[in-house]
């Protein structure tokens, strides 16, 4: 059971679900537009099943099944950090059009650097302000990209 739900096999199973979804979503198309997505989904599913069979039949699996590592607490910590970081990115994505690039980017940089262990305030603040301002200079000033802004 552990081998079936190894990390790699889990991803392959998800891709097989995607293939099934493609077949379902193209069910109502009939003009020929459904042909290539279905062929592609079939190819993906075919090779996915082949890879699944090969991985289950391997005696010494190339990929280790999910098992307890010695430094389990570090693994859990890294998962937690990744999750928090992901939420931070989502937060930036939501705030970006509302409060503008400058404010959201400075906030993002500050929070991210503190989360990742930055502690020297004299370094954190200048970096958190300089990098977004540099990007504003390059994109808005140099490349004429209209980044959302709170100020005007």
């Amino acid at each position: 059971m552990q081998k079936i739900f190894s990390y790699s096999n889990t991803m392959i199973l998800l891709l097989l679900v995607l293939c099934a979804a493609v077949f379902y979503l193209t069910g109502e198309m009939s003009s020929g537009a459904e042909l290539f997505p279905r062929i592609t989904a079939f190819g993906l599913a075919f090779f996915g099943i082949v890879e699944l069979i090969l991985s289950l039949s391997r005696k010494d699996s190339m990929e280790k099944p999910i098992k307890k590592e010695n430094n389990q607490h570090l693994v859990r910590k890294s998962v937690l950090y990744m999750l928090v970081f992901f939420l931070l990115v989502i937060f930036f994505f939501l705030c970006f059009p509302l409060i503008g690039f400058e404010v959201s980017a400075i906030g993002f940089m500050l929070i991210a650097m503190v989360l990742l262990g930055g502690r020297k305030t004299l370094r954190l603040w200048p970096v958190a302000i300089l990098i977004p301002l540099l990007l504003v200079l390059v994109f808005r000033g140099g490349l004429d990209v209209r980044l959302p802004t709170l100020f005007f």
């Binding site: 790699s8 392959i12 891709l15 995607l18 493609v22 979503l25 193209t26 198309m29 003009s31 020929g32 537009a33 290539f36 997505p37 592609t40 989904a41 190819g43 993906l44 090779f47 996915g48 082949v50 890879e51 090969l54 190339m62 990929e63």
Partner: peptide, 30 residues
């Protein structure tokens, strides 16, 4: 890691490439 995964990734990319207007009949997909 595996050439099969490489081929699967290629197929996945082809699938992503089908999003949008169909190049022959102009239908909207996904």
């Amino acid at each position: 890691s595996s050439i099969i995964k490489g081929i699967m990734a290629g197929f996945l990319g082809l699938l992503l490439g089908t999003i949008g207007i169909d190049p022959i009949v102009g239908d909207m997909r996904f």
